[in-house]
């Protein structure tokens, strides 16, 4: 297999040079080469969403995205989530509603919620259901709903 030398990735406003086989998923570059372990491996098949990151503001399951296809794009991982205004509010809502249990899926949940709220500041319940499909084996779904519903309310109004 060819090596993709001098692959430059823009992650959390920093440029990283990585040297990996070109089919390596973005997830493993983030976790293994760069040591940003807040992004989790759960299935490797884009089924669970634990590996969710933002690529140019859109949520992506990084376990099935070849790193090479993220070159030239802005990647945001959970480590930088509080540097984003919406991300910071999401984290605060997660704490307010005491969402995480084991916590393993929650980086991905926070990323998915942030992406939704950045694109659609006041999503309807149907839009939330359509956008967030990340699995949680602890079943924190009621708490996730409560946290997102709080954020989805138009400011100063009722949903």
């Amino acid at each position: 297999m060819e090596l993709w030398n001098d692959m430059k990735l823009q992650i959390n406003q920093q440029t990283y040079d990585v040297d990996v086989a070109e089919d390596t998923p973005l997830l493993w570059v983030i976790r293994d080469n760069l040591g940003l372990t807040g992004t989790k491996y759960g299935c490797g098949l884009a089924q669970c969403g634990a590996c969710s990151v933002l690529v140019d503001g859109e949520v992506v399951r990084s376990c099935v995205m070849p790193a090479v296809s993220a070159v030239g794009k802005q990647i945001t991982t959970i480590e930088a989530i509080e540097q984003d205004d919406v991300g910071k509010r999401v984290v605060q809502a997660w704490v307010n509603h005491q969402v995480p249990q084991c916590g393993y899926c929650q980086s991905g949940q926070v990323m998915a919620a942030t992406a939704l709220l950045k694109a659609t500041p006041n999503p309807s319940r149907d839009e939330i259901t359509a956008a967030i499909s990340n699995l949680c084996r602890c079943g924190t779904y009621n708490a996730i709903d409560a946290a997102i519903d709080e954020l989805a309310k138009p400011v100063g109004g009722n949903a």
Binding site: G38, E79, V95, Q98, G103, Q106, S107, V110
Partner: peptide
């Protein structure tokens, strides 16, 4: 409140993996 919720909401909790 639980003692570990913030860390788990920002990816700072460390599992074996």
């Amino acid at each position: 409140d639980r003692v570990d919720v913030y860390e788990k909401s920002v990816g700072k909790a460390n599992y074996t993996i």
